[in-house]
Amino acid sequence: MDKLYIICVDDQREVLNALTEDLELFESHLHIEECESADEAWDVIESVDSEGDHVAVLVTDQVMPKNSGVDLLKKLREDGRFDQTRTVLLTGQATHKDTIEAINTAHLDNYIEKPWKKEALHETIKVLITKFLLAKGLDYQKLTDVIDQNTLLTNLRKTT
């Protein structure tokens, strides 16, 4: 099966560590990549794509030196290869304007405020992974630990 990735971006290493630590649950089935800048994240996204694997979820901080999280999300959205990749903006200091911009121009899927709650983060990521798998038509049966049942059931009702 093709590999699935969750890409985490935050310029603060401590925060990045805490984030991947909290996402460890997903590592049983998905790969987690840590990136300290938007540019680094883009390189990783490109290499995942060139291997024929999938970026299922991108979790990014907003305020970073050079390219911001919103810049990264916009770039991802404008690239047809990643139109199903789900995105999360994770930040404690986004201004109202940043958030609106992220939603309007980068079609942000989710906005999580720092400090986050582990359970809430898990729920969100599960829903996003499920949506990604269903949209991509990938096999979800072996991933029951990391997908959201409600999202799955709602979708399965529509099939025959």
Binding site: R13, L16, N17, E33, E34, C35, E36, E40, V44
Partner: peptide
Amino acid sequence: GQEVSSEDAR
């Protein structure tokens, strides 16, 4: 602490 950057870690 952690001195390895994410890029070097890869």
